Amino acid sequence: MEWLTDPFEVGFVARALWGGLLVSVICGLAGTWVVLRGMAFMSDAMAHGMLPGVAIASLLGGSLLLGAALSTVAMTLGVTALSRTSRLSQDTGIGLLFVGMLSTGVIIVSHSQSFAVDLTGFLFGDVLAVRAGDLLLLAGALALALLLTIVFHRSFVALAFDRRKAATLGLRPGLAHGVMVALLTLAIVASFHVVGTLLVFGLLIAPPAAMALWADRIPAIMIGAAVIGGLATVGGLLISWHLGTAAGATIAAFAVACFFVSVLATLVRDRLRFTATPLKGH
């Protein structure tokens, strides 16, 4: 069992484990709503739309978190404005702003002498460089995410399934949507500097999508998504340690693999149910 336990006895791997577990829970809470509401494209655009703010903050020596948050808010406001003031669909507005923000960020980063390193760090993060301060930040973000999830649960549920009914019930779907976007922003901004945008997006989508194939209740999806994300974190770190692969990318790949395993398992389950169901008249 040494191959299973020895890696986590190393300090930086243990911190990476805790960081990944905290990110998994945060992304499980926010990602459930992303999956249920079909907001995957928007969350991807928000994750990559942070690059201009991060790049400017890096060049000016400012706070990367503040730069990421401001850039993400600008992306969200831009999508909202385009969808309300033009004949373009929301997907079109998201796509245009996605490309525009990402290319702007790359142009800004290209002025840095460490262009390749900066961009790679933004995309893939450095989960093995997680510090104690990062863990405290993630713990605070998790507490806030839990608070928003509990307080606005009814509004989120109504918004996810019937916006008009939510308005009829006085649940203020506009406010609920804004808070839901804020929850998504919190998950992305709090996690990206630790694990990179690709890993954040992988943990936002893959675990909740995998669990949604098996669970009908939203809390069950959230809990299952956090467990699957935690499994991906442990498995990815072990594979990375023993095979020498990039830790963040390996965790993201493991999470996506869990989704496809879940899909295959549901196909087998449905096939067995169909086979076991007796035909009428027999």
Rank of each mutant, 00 (worst) to 15 (best):
T185F: 08
S240C: 09
S114Q: 03
S262Q: 03
R172V: 15
P208C: 08
V194T: 13
M1Y: 14
S63Y: 04
S114A: 04
G49I: 10
L66G: 09
G248M: 02
C27W: 07
A68S: 13
A57H: 13
V25R: 05
G281K: 09
F259N: 06
R87D: 13
S43C: 10
W33I: 05
M39H: 04
G133T: 15
L88K: 03
A166E: 02
S89N: 10
L21H: 10
P207T: 12
T72W: 14
L238R: 12
W18M: 05
V54L: 11
F12E: 11
L272D: 14
L102T: 03
L65I: 06
G20Y: 00
A187D: 06
V117I: 06
R172K: 14
A190C: 04
S262Y: 02
G170N: 05
L213D: 12
G19D: 03
F260G: 03
W33F: 08
L243S: 13
H242L: 08
F98I: 03
D134C: 09
D134M: 01
G61P: 03
V194E: 02
P207G: 00
L198K: 01
A212H: 15
T76L: 13
V73E: 14
W241C: 11
A57D: 00
L142E: 12
A276S: 06
G140T: 11
A187F: 08
T80N: 12
T197A: 05
V127H: 00
P7S: 07
G174W: 05
